[in-house]
Nucleic acid binder design. Structure first.
Lengths: 218, 218
DNA sequence: TCTGATTATAAACGGCTGTTTAAAACATAG
DNA sequence: CTATGTTTTAAACAGCCGTTTATAATCAGA
């Protein structure tokens, strides 16, 4: 079963290097040499570098979406005919995000990859993620809509992305920030610790008063 | 004065391409051909690609820091012996961020560049920005400290970065989000509009209740 | 054990990268 | 006009890129 071994060794190495340097800055030769695998193996097993990038994400997002759907199923069967509270929804999502990579001790990598998916060019990646995993986000957004009935649709849309930005930005840039925090406050900060700090901020942000209406010509 | 012309034409083109595709994905040949300038001009006028990247940032950040220092000076002379309210501080920063690129109609580019500075590898860039512009952020953070005396230092540190993440992430990924928003809500969203929406969320996030203390062994 | 498919390997492909060189063009001050 | 310093230009440099090819090794089933 040398095949599986090669494939997973490529994936394991690629995700670390991608997370550290980004996609364009990581060459196939970087990956294959560190993984002690022949250069051509990537194109043989995955077809192309783009497909490898997508495979790296699929390995996280497939179990994530499956579990998150299950978690939402359970919540929906618990809260019948009444909206699931926002805090419960956020809690459920946070737990699922933590659960999946925890089994491989790669939470940091996963977070960094999520950040890269948003910020690196890689149009094919966004299309891939949207096509394969867009539905679970749509479902989540609909539940958030029911949990915050007083929020105008557009406002909720933007606030959800504000909060997504907060979380992904923070957790994906964690290493840099952690260095500063430890130097300034001598305090070691774990990811779980950060999520504990993030929760009240996110909830307060979602529940913030509505902005004053845009000024128009009077 | 062909020199200045070449230099600014390189900067103008480079900042747009960097903002669109990122640093590694933009080659000097992309830049020089689009700018109608000889390839060697970049190395002649700037020395290297890294130096060009830094020059692109300096052209925004030099006037920004100068004006922001001035704005903070004015606030400090207005609020003597009493803390400047958080809202006022945030308002002042937002106005300065908007002011600088407005003169060249390049707000989108500036925001995108800020996002890239955080998320792209480019260690030299972070070091450059920290070394040249770190002091204004330090000053701002100190004023925020006085404005939020009840917040523990570590908590305030993290929340500032949470909010920084929200703003930069949103504004730098604006184009992608705007497409979705317009499709779903038919509503055109300007940057000023987004900042109007961001303000109450950021303020509420900074003023959120403290998180429950980390659980320890009982 | 032999066969046929799967996987691993080394080598080469064309193309693009940032940078350097040396010569040409230009501007400016004496 | 001439000499000097600055800027532009075309060409070449070595090096890395993703991908492909042809060959070798390995494996599974009959």
């Amino acid at each position: 079963m040398a095949q599986t071994d090669t494939v997973t060794r490529i994936l394991d190495t690629a995700e670390v290097l991608f997370a550290e340097r980004g996609f364009a800055e990581t060459s196939l030769r970087n990956i294959t040499s560190k993984a002690k695998v022949n250069l051509a193996a990537v194109n043989y097993h995955f077809g192309s570098k783009k497909a490898l990038i997508q495979a790296v994400f699929a390995r996280y997002l497939d179990p994530f979406t499956e579990r998150f759907h299950t978690a939402l199923d359970e919540l929906e069967s618990e809260y019948v005919d009444r909206p699931i509270p926002l805090e419960v929804l956020l809690e459920s999502m946070a737990r699922t995000v933590l659960e999946v990579p925890a089994e491989r001790n790669s939470l940091k990598v996963f977070m960094r990859l999520l950040g890269l998916a948003y910020t690196q060019a890689q149009g094919h990646l966004r299309r891939f993620i949207q096509a394969h995993y867009g539905s679970v986000f749509t479902r989540f957004a609909e539940l958030v809509r029911r949990a915050t009935p007083d929020l105008p649709d557009a406002e909720r849309f933007w606030r959800l992305h504000f909060m997504l930005g907060t979380v992904i930005f923070t957790l994906s840039g964690l290493d840099a920030l952690r260095d500063i925090a430890e130097k300034d406050y001598g305090e070691h900060v774990s990811v779980r610790d950060l999520i504990r700090r993030l929760r009240p901020v996110v909830v307060a942000g979602m529940n913030a008063p509505l902005p004053e209406p845009a000024k128009t010509v009077s």
